[in-house]
Amino acid sequence: MKRTVPLMIVMVGGILMMIQYFIPHQYSQVVFDNYTEWAPIVGAFALLLGVGSLTRVHSHRIKRKAPNWPYSWAVLIPLFGMPFLALIWPESLWGGSDSPSVFHFLFMNIQVPIQSTMFSLLAFYIASAAFRAFRAKSALATVLLLSAVIVMLAQVPIGEIFGPWLQNTGLWILRYPNLAAKRAIMLGVGFGILATNLKIIFGVERNWLGGAGE
């Protein structure tokens, strides 16, 4: 019951859904339609697990007065405040700035700027990574450096002063050698995914069972 039944569910579900793709029949379509109806519902409940876990971690931190515990309120208050606000003003979920609400305010003026600033922060780290990676210490490192510099210069206005050859070369690198490398990686990743899918379906890979008791 604890391990065999979940493994059976994975095997039967996996084989069934794999086979239904190749059977153009109405019963096969019914199986797929039911799956698309059920899967989002089951998946939505996984959010309970995440919210429960987050709440447990932060409430423990507050209770134990762990280091930096006041910040846990900054997680818990919006965690429950946002759904509450959406519940009392359901229209605020979809309303733009025409129908301002606290929910909309928090999302647009805290969430959105923080997230985009965090991504832009990566510009600084990627620049420092580039400084370390782009050293022409060997022929291969020089190729990496030249390729990156040409692609970058080809996309900015200052690159125009070198003439159209730079932009054409940048485009050529993106369209051919870059695509060749990416295609090889994608094929490798694709085969890896297929192998992992089969290993999970046939119960060879069982790490997903986790440590919830034998």
Partner: peptide, 18 residues
């Protein structure tokens, strides 16, 4: 809790394969 994970995992893998 392995049951819902097994359901999503198995069907997801099956749909994802082709």
């Amino acid at each position: 809790s392995r049951y819902p994970i097994a359901f999503l995992m198995g069907t997801g893998m099956g749909i994802g394969f082709p």
